[in-house]
Design a protein around this nucleic acid. Structure first.
Lengths: 123, 123, 123, 123
DNA sequence: GTGGTCTAGACCACA
DNA sequence: GTGGTCTAGACCACA
C-alpha cells in the first residue's frame, strides 16, 4: 500500500507521511482504524523502524493520526488530513501556476490537464 | 530583484536558480544581457559567493545561461528557460492536482485560482 | 465515574490512580467502602485487568487503599489521599507558576482562575 | 545554561525543549540570536546529538525557533514561546488547582505560594 | 507486542 | 561546520 522511491530527493519519512495522509483521505484507512505497527511497516518496507517512528510522530503532532499507549497508532478524522493537505496543496498550486504562466502554459493546456485528473466525476 | 527566504526548506541556491530563470522568462533579463557577477550578487544578497557559484553552474549546465571567458555570465535564449520550466512545472501541477482532488478541492475552486492568476492577460 | 483518555500522554494506570484518589477525597468513596473489583472495573472501562491491577497495587503501596484477603480493595482514610495529593500538587503548582510568570500571566489572571475554581465554596 | 535531570521521568529532549523556551522567554536568547549548534550542545551536555536534534526539530515545528540552511538554529520571536507556554501552563494550573481544592489547600496557602514566586515585581 | 527514548555512528546537502 | 536523514540496536514503560 506504500511505494517508496528511495532515489527521490524527498526523504523517505516524508513520503510515508504523505502516503498515510492520502490513505486516510481516500478512506482506505477509515477514522480510528489501526495503522500498521512501526516495526511491521518497517519490515514490510525494508527500512529502519526509526524512520517509520519519525513519520508517525510528525503525523501525530499534526493531529492526522493518534497513538494509544501500548496498542498502536490509529487514523484520525479524515477532515484533519484533508485540511492540512488543502492548505499545503493550494499554496503549491498557486506557485506552480505562476511559473506555468511565465513559461507560456496556456489555459487550454491547463484545462486538458485538469480534465485528465478530475475526469468526469469531480464535483 | 531577488528575494531570498533563508529559513525556507528550499536551498538558497535553488531559490536563486528559479528566480533567475523567471527573470529571463519575464524578459527582465533579455537574451545575452549580462547577469550580476557572482561576487556582486553575493554581496547584494548577503550570502556566500559559493552559493551563487553553484546556482550559476547548474544554470549553465542546463543551458539557461552561458559564461564568457573573463567577461561574466549572460542570459541564454528565453526558449531554453521556458522549456525547462514547462517540463518541471507540468509535473508539479500533475502531482498537486492529484492531491487536491483527494483533499476535495473542487473544480470551481481551481477555476477561481486560475482566474486569479491568469486573469485577463495571459500574455 | 472514571473517564479515561486513551490517547493522553498520561498512562492509563496513572489516570486511574489519580481518579480514585479524587473519589476518596471527594468522599464519593468513603473510608472502608469497597472499590470495584479489578475485573469489573476493567470490563467497565474496556481495558486490560493488568492495568487496573497496577493502579491498585501502587495505591495500596502508598496507603491510599488497602486490600483484604479474598474480599477486595477498600478506600483508606481520606487524610492519606489528601496528604499525598497536597504534596504532589504543591510541587506542580510551584513549577507551573514559575513558567506562568515567564509567560507573562498576570496576578489578575491567576486571581480570576482561582476565583473560577475555588468560587465561593472552598469547602 | 541548561541543567538536565537524567533521572527525571521527563525525557531529556523535553527538558531541553522547555529550557530553550524559557531562555527565549527570559530574553537570554533574544529573537534571531544563534542557539548552540546541535553538536556543541550535545557535547556540552554529554548526550547524543540526536537527542538535541529531536528537541530542536520539535521547537522548529512549533515555530519557537527556526533553522537556516548550513548556518544553525536561531531563536524565534518571544511571543511565539510565550503563547505556547501560556496555553500549556494555564491548562496545567487549572488541573492542579482542582486537585489542590480537593486536597484542602486553602486560598491563604495559595496566596502565600503566589507571593513567594511572583514576589513584588509581577505584571 | 507496541510505541518512546536514547546512543553510536555514518553519510549527505548546504553554506 | 551545520543541520537532516537514516541505520542498527538497546532498553524502557505500558497494555
Amino acid at each position: 500500500m506504500i511505494q517508496l522511491d528511495l532515489s527521490s530527493r524527498t526523504p523517505v519519512y516524508l513520503q510515508i507521511k504523505e502516503r498515510i495522509t492520502e490513505l486516510i483521505m481516500m478512506e482506505i484507512c477509515p477514522p480510528d482504524s489501526r495503522l500498521p505497527s512501526v516495526r511491521s511497516l518497517a519490515m514490510e518496507l525494508g527500512i529502519n523502524p526509526n524512520t517509520i517512528q519519525k513519520a508517525y510522530q510528525e503525523l501525530e503532532a499534526e493531529g492526522v493520526i493518534y497513538t494509544v499507549g501500548g496498542k498502536g497508532c490509529f487514523a484520525g478524522r479524515r477532515e484533519k488530513a484533508v485540511g492540512l493537505t488543502r492548505q499545503r496543496v493550494l499554496g503549491e498550486l498557486r506557485d506552480s501556476l505562476h511559473q506555468a504562466q511565465l513559461a507560456g502554459v496556456t489555459e487550454q493546456e491547463l484545462a486538458a490537464l485538469l480534465e485528465e485528473i478530475y475526469g468526469g466525476d469531480s464535483k
